[in-house]
């Protein structure tokens, strides 16, 4: 069922904003078993694409002393085994793996994952309040939420939780004053200028506008997290009936 959700799609062009991408990636130690390769110091898609490109190269190279590569907004953290290589040796090896990244990197190779969402009702108890705050109708909020393509900058906070960029300011809304004690897995929410999907049941203060029947995290899958850093996400509105059908297929 997973493949069905993934469709090829043209990647949007990202305008030049004059962001501060480091001329050369900067490596620095993080304790005695890790190092950080930084590509810039702000949240920006061009920087994140360099993170993704380097991460792909490191995963492919799979240097013997490296244990794990963790991509985030602006950097890749490499965990290594100091019994197999010194910090200096590793810096030299990694330097060779990630050298000569193209000056322009775009996400044209990025995978787009389509996430069906049943908006409003019991699944999206805060859709009305998000609409009211922005002088929109609930349908307009849904339309705006569905029209953007959202880059997955990184996965963190909880298993399979995507940090998404690219939400329209026209539907932003502050967190709830009192967080809910239980938010069901699959809930789609808005917090400030961010949107996201809760992969597992957890407490949380995001305003919920809908729910997806897709399992964003499933430990029995080969890749438990549906989304990976570097993916693009599109939300599509589906009816309760379609939601239930997909849910049965996912089970």
């Amino acid at each position: 069922m997973l493949q069905k959700a993934i469709v090829a799609r043209e990647c949007p062009e990202v305008g030049e904003k004059g962001v501060s991408i480091f001329e050369r990636p900067q490596m620095s130690p993080l304790g005695d078993c890790a190092l950080v390769i930084a590509f810039g110091d702000e949240i920006d898609q061009a920087i994140n694409w360099r993170v993704k490109a380097s991460w792909d190269r490191l995963e492919a190279a799979s240097l013997p002393a490296t244990v794990e590569h963790i991509p985030t907004f602006t950097n890749v953290t490499v965990i290594y085994d100091p019994l197999r290589a010194s910090y200096k040796e590793l810096v030299a090896e990694i330097g060779r793996v990630i050298e000569a990244l193209p000056a322009q990197i775009s996400g044209t190779e990025a995978r787009t994952v389509e996430i069906p969402v049943c908006y409003g009702g019991d699944f999206g108890p805060d859709l009305e309040s998000v609409a009211a705050r922005n002088d929109l109708s609930p349908d307009e909020v849904v339309a705006i939420h569905c029209e953007s393509t959202y880059p997955v900058y990184m996965i963190g906070f909880a298993p399979g939780f995507p940090y998404l960029g690219g939400m329209s300011e026209r539907i932003s809304a502050p967190r709830l004053d009192t967080p809910r004690e239980k938010i069901p897995a699959g809930s789609v929410g808005i917090a400030g200028r961010q949107t996201g999907v809760y992969p597992i049941e957890t407490p949380g203060g995001w305003r919920l506008i809908g729910r997806t029947p897709l399992r964003l995290f499933d430990p029995t899958r080969h890749s438990p997290s549906l989304l990976q850093a570097g993916d693009l996400v599109r939300f599509t509105a589906v009816s309760k009936k379609e939601y239930e059908r997909t849910q049965r297929e996912e089970a």
Partner: peptide, 10 residues
């Protein structure tokens, strides 16, 4: 700060 990877012992 921009969120980044943390480790055991951080």
């Amino acid at each position: 700060l921009i969120s980044t990877a943390v480790l055991t012992g951080t």
